[in-house]
Design a protein around this nucleic acid. Structure first.
Length: 536
RNA sequence: GCUCCGGUGGUGUAGUCCGGUCAAGCAUUCCGGCCUUUCGAGCCGGAGAUCCCGGGUUCGAAUCCCGGCCGGAGCACCA
């Protein structure tokens, strides 16, 4: 066959062109008769993409996932990735989704009181079904119990070495002097951590691991330390706080988490936590490492957003320039969009950079069928048209695919053949003398004069078809004197100003509309009218 | 430096575990056409990838093996 590829190629192209010349009905009927399976396989590709199956589900009674944020900043698009995966899997396997606030760092990543609520709101907005909620700062006594038990077992010790000194020991794969202390001695030192004899930085509880471990960061890692800051929920009730690896490992076991979906930056932590799990003889959950998600535009980093708010360069956690869920919501992004995009990316260990174009496209497919159309004339410029014959009644449909939604009707009556309009500044700039344009839905004009007072034009023709054939630019317009003042906050936080149709006044906050030839926007405030730009 | 993980069109992904049906699917992007009174929306069509490089195994590799290059994450008394 290979040797006669040329001949084969010729025959194939002959047959293909013959079949292509058939009408569609004949093509389909031949297929149905002779190869019906080919028609079926076409449907299959249309199925919605889903997440790959979870591994080792049978190891656990029930699939339990958990999302464990630190409430020190609002959730952002990057946070949405593990959230969606956890939620999807919990639902897929009839399991449970746990929300766990990891607020055990009063000194370094101080929790913010209102963020706890925001996170719950954002989760609800995303359509996540939360089955259990825990707050780690309410569970300190549980961590203390385990600490005492490990100290008593000889699996942990209280280390009073300065961190630099300790580092030298572990880099040399050597034990620090504290490691060999008796459990009595350790328990005594533990009491000194609790009662304030030891000050911040004086002592830390370490979990014994393997001093020979190739990764130095794994060797005898710290589990609890002294922090003297005031906690927003607990005040100064506690001075010894668990570190991430300790509270996390304890809770994942206590809460019977089956599958941990976490960023791959936690890989070393997984290794650390296995040691604790082994000391206590626990089953270790399945781990799924996912890559970091970047957004090509918009700031995702919590600390950057926080400092930007503090220095005034951002207006708040929902500034349009930041990638928080609150900001995306305010801009009109739909929760279904976020879910779909995350499923498309999938739980993989590679770092993906999401393009805004792609997100916008997914979102557009969702909002386009339900967005009513309106006119918004940005930076209005006057346009006087002469030579108009008769009256012109215009019906602009609220949605081209939904005639039942009604229309916006305008009756243009010319006074001595003249009528005045406004068009957007951007369109006006493109107009040249002797150029043409079509006022959408109305009629076509020929530009006669450009002046400081506006644009002068004369009536050219009525037909839409003609405008298309002659390739006239289509511009949107409003009759002079109608419309309400409107502002649209753009993605860069600048504001577009102009006139919107009066009907916009009645729109409820939160509704999504399309300003024709401008873009989709979400109504942020009815009066005064203000919207946020979603995407084109 | 050390530990680990990746490299498929401009971008994001499918396929890689269990080699062939993959000269590679989907989406985005760009271009063209259509919507017979609406657009930058929608619908239809087209363009765009020697599957990081080199070698090996095999009748056959994006898929397996070895080497290289490039990129990322981690190496806190943060989470």
């Amino acid at each position: 066959m290979r040797g006669r590829a040329k001949e084969v190629n010729e025959i194939v192209s002959q047959v293909v062109s013959e079949v292509n010349s058939w009408p569609r009905e004949r093509q389909v009927s031949v297929l149905e008769k002779r190869w019906p399976e080919l028609l079926e396989s076409r449907k299959k590709t249309e199925e919605r993409k889903t997440l790959p199956p979870l591994k080792n589900v049978e190891r656990f009674e029930i699939v339990k996932t958990r999302f464990a944020p630190n409430p020190d900043g609002a959730l952002h698009l990057g946070s949405a990735e593990p959230i969606i995966f956890c939620d999807e899997y919990a639902k897929m396997y009839d399991g449970r989704f746990i929300l766990r606030f990891e607020d055990t760092s009063p000194d370094v990543k101080t929790p913010i009181t209102e963020i706890y609520e925001w996170i719950e709101e954002d989760l609800e907005w995303l359509g996540v079904k939360v089955d259990e909620i825990y707050i780690q700062s309410d569970r300190i006594d549980i961590y203390y119990e385990y600490a005492v038990r490990l100290l008593d077992m000889g699996s942990a010790y209280v280390c009073t070495c300065a961190s630099q000194a300790f580092k030298e020991f572990y880099m040399a794969k050597e034990a620090c002097p504290c490691r060999s202390n008796s459990s009595e001695e350790n328990l005594e030192r533990w009491m000194k951590m609790l009662d304030g004899t030891f000050k911040k930085g004086d002592a830390v509880v370490r979990i014994k691991t393997d001093l020979e471990h190739p990764n130095p960061a794994v060797r005898d890692w710290p589990a609890l330390r002294i922090a003297e800051g005031v906690h927003p929920r607990q005040g100064d009730k506690y001075r010894v706080w668990p570190l991430y690896n300790f509270s996390c490992a304890v809770d994942d076991h206590e809460m019977k988490v089956s599958h941990i979906i976490r960023g791959k930056e936690h890989e070393v932590n997984t290794t650390r936590q296995r040691y604790l799990s082994d000391h206590l003889g626990w089953e270790f959950p399945e781990i799924i490492n996912i890559g970091r998600l970047g957004l090509e535009v918009g700031v995702l980093s919590k600390s950057k957003i926080r400092s930007g708010i503090e220095d005034g360069s951002f207006t708040g956690w929902d500034d349009p320039r930041v990638g928080t869920l609150r900001s995306l919501k305010r801009r009109g992004l739909q929760p279904e969009t976020i879910r779909e995009v995350m499923i498309q990316v999938g739980p993989k260990p590679i770092n993906a950079t999401l393009s805004w174009d792609h997100i916008a496209s997914v979102n557009r497919k969702i909002i386009e069928p339900r967005a009513r159309r309106f006119t918004f004339v940005r930076d209005p410029v006057n346009l006087k048209v002469t030579g108009i014959l008769g009256e012109h009644d215009v019906r602009l449909p609220s949605h081209p695919d939904h005639p039942e939604w009604g229309s916006r009707d305008y009756s243009v009556r010319a006074d001595k053949g003249e009528a005045e309009f406004v068009v957007s500044g951007e369109d006006a700039e493109k107009m040249k003398v002797d150029g043409f344009a079509r006022l959408m839905g109305l009629f076509n004009i020929e530009i006669t004069h450009l002046g400081p007072g506006g644009i002068h034009a004369r009536f050219h023709s009525k037909s839409h078809q003609e405008a298309r054939e002659l390739d006239f630019p289509f511009v949107h317009w409003l009759p002079s004197g109608v419309g309400i003042q409107a502002r649209v906050v753009m993605p860069d936080a600048s504001t577009a100003q102009g006139l919107a149709e009066e009907e916009c006044q009645g729109l409820k906050e939160g509704s999504i509309i399309q300003f024709e030839r401008f873009g989709f926007v979400r109504i942020d405030s009815e009066s005064p009218f203000m919207a946020y730009y979603t995407h084109r």
